[in-house]
Amino acid sequence: MSKKILQMKNIIKSYSDTEVLKDISLSVEEGEVVSIIGPSGSGKSTLLRCATFLEKINGGLIQYLDTVAAHTNEEGKVVYVNRNQLTHVKSYFGLVFQQFNLFPHFSVLKNLTHAPILVQKRDSKEVEQEARELLKKTGLEDKADAYPCQLSGGQQQRVAIARALNLNPDILFFDEPTSALDPELTGEVLKIIKELADEKMTMVIVTHEMSFARAVSKRVIFMDGGFIVEEGDPEQVFGDPSQERTKQFLKNYNQV
């Protein structure tokens, strides 16, 4: 059995009165590509934001490899590890945002190299060399000295992916990575993600690109109303969904 990179157990997340995640469990094995689909407001993005500590959970457990980063104690309160340990846990994952969130005042190359040098205290020459290789891989080698504002949305998202990869994460999260892009630019970003999947990069992808999810993932999770409604092999979920809600959601997609 391959090792588990991420384990989330019985995650509960609520904003004041609304419960957004109701007892969600998700574990991801090394090399696995998991897609999370579902209607807007189903909690898919919130789940990613909880996994990446951008939101605090109200209950449950989050574990990366052997480190439990957050858990519910006997009194029912959620306890996170201390700041230093959390910084260390953050080095296990990377997150690619819908809105790219590149640093506009840094060149493309500096966007990739700044965090590894500053945060991970790695050798700047080595980091730069790796960054240039990643840019080559994402087809942006001639853009190293450009600034984000000079790039198309698709190029910016590719830089964001390279930026996350340059920290050598064990798992990469994508939060609707192509939702801010027009169809023409979507393809170039999906191509990169597909290549990463072929290289056995562990990934969790929240997406509305159904065909892509079907083609690239090993497992598909359908969420609605803060629950995991259905999960399984993409051919099964897309081709022969067992739940009524899944059928309803995929009806439009399957008609196309």
Binding site: T87, K90, F97, Q99, V119
Partner: peptide
């Protein structure tokens, strides 16, 4: 934008580093 803080947070910047290196410039 909030996204700048979030990106820095996920990349492992401390609050001070985020302010001085990302936000302030």
């Amino acid at each position: 934008s909030k996204g700048q803080y979030e990106a820095a947070d996920v990349l492992g910047y401390t609050k001070t580093q985020t302010f001085l290196r990302i936000i302030l410039p």
